[in-house]
Design a protein around this nucleic acid. Structure first.
Length: 490
RNA sequence: GGCGACGUACCCAAGUGGUAAGGGAGAGGUCUGCAAAACCUUUAUGCGGCGGUUCGAAUCCGCCCGUCGCCUCCA
């Protein structure tokens, strides 16, 4: 390991040094989306954050197993007991099979995540694919006396699990006192939550169980699937702050009651996205979908915007703020393009144990960057370090001293690793100038024509070429040495 | 009502006891045929307000104001 990582554990409410269950390995589970609608900016923040966290763990040498579920059943529109299944509701409205809704929005979800440069989780288990495991868990809890059946429903008996409320800082008594009176409930205690729900007539998604036909409660899937793939005790469980209660609280209760072991060592919660200062939620209908945002901004700009604030801070989405972020990101891309043009893309591995201090003090910048990332994944501070370094690099490039291919290559590889491989804020291989294709040849042809016009002081023709290229999204820049480079704007 | 978080320049945003990172925008300058890009300089005696602790506080304590979140589905 190159460094110790400190992270804020919601369970202890303080920063702790990360100590893996198994040396060199990380098992992480992050609550995935319920796929009944397009993903919004909030999903983007959550999954971009955890993507950066996972990438960083991999960077420092951990072998990571990243599990993120797809909820495709059982998530009710109301509280944990009443209301329709969200997916069925959409399905009924559109008169299609619920699984078609699931398929549509699951594809939409992955498409959006791909565009945000998020690496796919290692395992994306679906709730409906793990009905057996969920039934087993419910059976076990019932047999152990932690759960009871009532009219085809199975409820977890919160009174049997005294630690309930530890994660969210809530007291069961307060919850009961504050709970809405539900006269029809078969529950012993208003705070009890459903492990299994009886399927009423007309309910489409249903499975046979020891308690009759029904479907699993929302919380159960995450316990069943996380433990299946990561073991009864695993390292990190992540998710949105809004899921801390009741969802994660219920997961802990179910899992620890069933196994008698600690469920998760470190709980990580990302903060929420607000739009115009108000929380965005599917229920409120004020959400900005990622597809909306992508129509306005480059997806990587959205990613950069997200990582420019800390994952535990709330993020207010505004076009002004994203535009500002986008311009900063432009600078980063410009530098990468220049370094690449100087021959920097010749593959070169970076030896982080032996970094040079000249002509750019990579050793220092790496140390600062690493310290920022290792301190609860402080991506905004890490990005600030990169910008300081870019200033040095730009000064070097503009100094007229000249940069050797070797140095350019080293700077490129270094930046590519920190900003690209780990933070994911450098888009794929799109840096224009070095391409070998017809587009590149045409662009260089026009550049040459313009250069000839300029030589003949025919600035009208030269500017016409430049402005018309700009109209189609190609921007020309004249360098100090008299050459001209082009870039394709988004 | 209960619990929690936050309030840093025009905008975004780090910083949790040692004298205000970074990005955007603005202003001036260098370079350029002009642009663009880049570079240089500049923009908070102050970190919601008022007290307190301390040699020293944006950072700790108290009160107040404001905003947001959770307590019901949400990443």
């Amino acid at each position: 390991m190159k460094t110790d990582i400190y992270l804020y554990n919601s369970l202890s409410r303080q920063k702790e040094k990360f100590v893996p269950t198994e040396e060199g390995k990380l098992g992480i589970y992050v609550c995935g989306p319920t796929v009944y609608n397009h993903s919004h900016i909030g999903h983007g923040k959550s999954y971009v954050s955890f993507d950066a966290i996972v990438r960083f763990f991999r960077f420092v040498g951990y072998k990571v197993l990243y599990v993120q579920n797809i909820t495709d059943v059982g998530h009710l529109t109301d509280n944990a007991d009443e209301g329709d299944d969200k997916i069925e509701k959409e399905a009924k409205r559109d008169r299609v099979n619920p699984m078609a809704i699931v398929e549509t929005f699951m594809r939409s979800y992955f498409e959006d995540m791909d565009r945000l440069g998020i690496e796919r989780p290692d395992i994306s288990p679906r709730a409906t694919g793990h009905i057996i495991e969920q039934i087993e868990l419910a059976k076990k809890l019932t047999a152990q006396g932690f759960a009871y059946e009532a009219g085809g429903n199975v409820y977890f008996d919160v009174s049997k699990f005294p630690q309930y409320g530890r994660l969210s800082g809530k007291k069961v008594e307060d919850l009961i006192a504050g709970a809405r009176i539900d006269v029809r409930s078969e529950k012993k205690n208003p705070a009890d939550f459903a492990l299994w729900k009886r399927a009423e007539a007309g309910h489409i998604m249903r499975w046979p169980s020891p308690w009759g036909e029904g479907f699993p409660g929302w919380h159960l899937e995450c316990s069943a699937m996380s433990m299946k793939y990561l073991g009864q005790t695993f390292d990190i469980h992540g998710g949105g702050l809004d899921n801390q209660f009741p969802h994660h609280e219920c997961e802990i209760a179910q899992s620890e009651a069933a196994t008698g072991k600690p469920f998760v060592k470190y709980w990580l919660h990302n903060n929420m996205v607000t739009v115009n200062g108000t929380k965005m939620s599917k229920s409120l209908g004020n959400f900005v979908t990622l597809k909306d945002a992508f129509a306005r901004f480059d997806p990587i700009t959205i990613r950069f915007f997200i990582l420019q604030s800390h994952y535990r801070s709330p993020l207010d989405y505004s076009e002004e703020a994203v535009e500002g972020a986008g311009k900063g990101l432009e600078r980063l891309k410009n530098i990468m393009r220049e370094l690449k043009a100087l021959g920097g893309d010749s593959a070169k591995a970076v030896n982080f144990d032996d970094l040079p201090e000249e002509p750019v003090d990579l050793k220092r910048y790496y140390g600062e960057w690493l310290a920022a990332m290792a301190d609860d994944f402080n991506t905004p501070a890490a990005i600030a370090v990169l910008f300081e370094m870019f200033k040095d690099i730009n000064t070097l490039l503009g100094s007229g001293v000249g940069v050797t291919v070797d140095v350019a290559s080293q700077l490129y590889a270094f930046t590519r690793t920190l900003a690209g491989e780990v933070l994911g804020i450098i888009p794929g291989e799109d840096a224009g100038a070095a391409g070998k294709n017809i587009e590149n040849d045409l662009a260089n042809l026009l550049i040459k024509m313009r250069a000839d016009a300029r030589k003949n002081k025919d600035f009208k023709a030269a500017d016409a070429i430049r402005s018309q290229l700009q109209d189609i999204g190609v921007i020309l820049e004249d360098k100090k040495d008299g050459t001209t480079v082009y870039k394709v704007s988004k």
